[in-house]
Amino acid sequence: MTGRTRRKGIFARLFRALLFRRATAKIGIYGPPNAGKTTLANQIIHTFADENEDIGTSTEIPHETRRAVRRAGILIDLKKRTLQNLGHNSDENPTTSSGPAPFTPAEAKSKLRLDIVDTPGLATKIDFHDFMAFGLEETEAKKRAKEATEGVIEAIKWLEDIDGVLLLMDATENPYTQTNIVIIGNLEARGIPVIIAANKIDLAEAAPQRIADAFPQHTVVPISALKGDNMDALYREMTRRFR
């Protein structure tokens, strides 16, 4: 049964790849709660669509996003990005300029049209007490727990309709979690292209290499979605993998 669905998925993807090369890729941003999924979605939208538009709000309370939100029609245009960088570099903080090498002329021509789906955080246990620790009332915390649980199920349902996954992990946390391992195993089985983004590298305790060591079979791009550090490396990888 799963074999058939998987084969169907691969054929559908091949078919799309051959006939609709320029079709929009649906990219899901997945990961555990508080990894920075919404911050990353906002960062991508600010860079390539509308700098005043937010897909959702980010807070320190886990499970802030409890419904999957889709933003359609984003054009990742590395040429535009190169121009933006040229404009910004003069007033940028020189200490953060240790980003990746500028795009090669061939890369700068890369464009990728995509829909972004910001999904609720995947977790194996959701307990309302955790939300009460952030000052939420019991009724509100219980409601949040219920919605977060529905959110996990919704996020998983969306996988049926996704062409590529940006899997976000918090580089300050241990990557060897059940959630990370289960989701990666399942994405591999489904044949969905994955890029792992090791987020929060702006924090001193971040150890993105630990994530790279944990999942050596995948491309791991260290980023800071909040500060926008190393985002070009991620965009480059996205245009390469999600075409």
């Binding site: 194996t124 246990k125 959701i126 307990d127 309302f128 007490h129 996990v152 199920i153 998983i156």
Partner: peptide, 19 residues
């Protein structure tokens, strides 16, 4: 795939949900 331990406390079996 989902265990309700008490109101507001849930355990999710991601493996079962995904597969």
């Amino acid at each position: 795939s989902l265990r309700i331990l008490s109101p507001g406390v849930y355990e999710l079996n991601l493996n079962a949900l995904l597969e």
